[in-house]
Amino acid sequence: MIPAPFTYLRPDTLGAAVAALAADEEAKALAGGQSLIPLLRFRLAAPTTVVDLSGAEGLRGVREEGGAVRIGALTTHHEVARDPLVAEHCALLAMAARTVADPAVRHRGTLGGSLAHADPAADLPAAALALDAEMEVEGPDGARTVPAAEFFSDYLTTALEPGEVLAAVRVPKRTGWSFHYEKFSRTAQAWAIVGVAAAVRHRDGRVAEARIALANMGTVPVRAHEAEQACRDASGPEELRGAGALAGRAGSPPGDLHGGADYRRHLAGVLAGRALAEVVRS
């Protein structure tokens, strides 16, 4: 399909991109285009200006910054999936990135684009939430940092104000933690019916601390607090699965073609149990 007409800008600095976005209330930022371009082509979005961020310097790549790994917003899923720093300090993000759609999408789609688009069925927002990532936001009034827990505010809606751009994601290094991303989808390329992002600190087969975030269990990625509490000190598959089952109580899942709300709750519980068992076993 053919998008409605728009002005296309490709500024070469982040500052210029912010200025361009601030100058037009109906402007949209374009990263990898894997969500925005389909919306444009269906004419579900009709921005008057599209600001392509791909020309802006410094938005791509991964580096260490003190106790965190800083990932530029335009780093692709493919790059996140194979980055050695990500693998060492926050492998959950790589695990989630590897499950996104298909290789073509993973080579074009970006981490920042996925987070800023904030589709609740997406894999990376849940992983970012479980990892307690921080969003580096650049706006007309300067830079600010938003924790993942406050970033996703509603369906396809984030804390980004008009004119603001997500510039990078800072993920705290989680030394001694183990991770697992459990995605349940109908086909390899499909969106998750439910996704479970689990980060667990464990000793001797016993959980010390867990952070579990769920994809597609509400209008935003949600933490499974009850399951997190219940799995403290749990060990053995039986206990872990029992604790995980409480993940089904989190959020307010949608019912759609691919699963009713009750089925999603059931799935979240089963998958969280499996994720915990998998993490502790590893």
Binding site: R186, T187, A188, Q189, A190, W191, L257
Partner: peptide, 28 residues
């Protein structure tokens, strides 16, 4: 296992894209 064209009560095709009408790929 995968494919079904679904209409809503008004007769609108709700599986109007490949995100909702699932075709198997080699991976499946």
């Amino acid at each position: 296992l995968f494919e079904e064209a679904v209409h809503d009560a008004e007769g609108t095709l709700t599986t109007a894209t490949m995100a909702d009408y699932l075709l198997p790929s080699a991976a499946d």
